[in-house]
Each structure stands twice: as C-alpha cells, then as structure tokens.
Amino acid sequence: MRVRINFEKTEAMRFTGHLDLQHAWMRVFRRAGIALEHSQGFHPLPKIQLASALPLGYISTAEILDAWLIESQPIIDLVKILNDNLPPGLEINSIEQIPLDAPKIQVALKTADYLVHLSSQTSLQNLPVKVAAFLAEAEILIERRGKRRDIRNLVELLEMKNSSDGQQAIYMRLSARESATGRPDEILIWMGIDPFETLIERTTLNI
C-alpha cells in the first residue's frame, strides 16, 4: 500500500534538516508499529520519499511524504495511529492512498508556494516597487554554488499579500522541478531584504 501524507513542519522541527526529517519519519512509523517496505540489498532502508527538501529554518504547512506500507489498512486508522506518534513540530493534514505505480513524488512536483512573513524591522514602503521591479526584469542572473543561474524564470508569481494575522507578507510561487528549484531567500536578497529577518512558510506543493 502506498500512501501520500500531507503534513506540517513547524516549531523546533523547522531546524531539522532533510535527512534528519527522513529519520524522524522512520521513527514515527516504528513507534506506530507500522512496518514499511524496505529497499533490497546489503543495507536495507525503509521506503519513504519526501517531495522536496525544505531549507533549514523554514516552516511548512504543506509537506508531502510518500510511504510504502507492507500491510494495507484503512486510511482513517492510519491517520489516528500516526498522529499519536508524531514528535512535536510535525502534524498530519491528510493522508490518501495512491497507486503503487504513480510517478515519483519528486518528479511529479511542479511548483511550490511560499509566504514570507516580514519582521517589524523590514520597511514595507518600497516593497510593491521592488516586487514590480523584479517582475519587470526579463532575466536575473545570480551565482548559486559557483554557477550562474537565472532566478527570474523560476518565479511564476510574486505579489504582496496579507498573512492570516493581518500583517503584510510576500507571496511567491516558485518552480520546484528537480532541475530548476527556486529559492525564496535568493529573491528576497535581490529585493534587499535580509532573509534572516523573515519567517518563510511553504504553503503548498503543487503537483
């Protein structure tokens, strides 16, 4: 049985990296007593896949994990037993069964939506201008790990938005394909905003 789990990653869990998050999920399944399929070979590993690495420090209300269970069981039971065994900072939004041969989640992923919560130190005055200026560019080349990259074509949407607490925030939809991943912090830096003065929330992974 293959299930797709949509979950939130918040609180202290925001400082848990991609690999450690995988380990955290493996422990959730072990605590819950739900046996996972394992890879073949000398060093068998539980079969779970995370859709997309979330940079350290970001929170997310919409992460996706695929897991291959040895025994089928009703989704409703699964939600309960996993919920009972989550560590602080992980929460399940939904679980659905998906076909065993559905495409790999990392491949199916197209874009990711982010909401950038601004701190009181950030000046809001010029923000709409900066957003417009970014969108007006045809190409924005920056250096990422020694390579020149165009970050403009990784941005599908960029706009000002009110967050749920009524504060001004920046909303962006970025490419999340395996070969072309947009990073919110690079866009913020281009606009002259220190990413460390913001709280970045991933709100949707679009498949």
């Binding site: 609180e11 400082f15 560590p87 602080p88 460390f196």
Partner: peptide, 16 residues
Amino acid sequence: ILPLVQKPGRYTGGEL
C-alpha cells in the same frame, strides 16, 4: 538567533 548558527536543533529543546 537560531537561524544564524550551525545545527540550531541543538538549542531548540522540545524533543520527543
């Protein structure tokens, strides 16, 4: 300050 240091998970507390 946690986002500014290596391995901030060392200092958060709240572990299971």
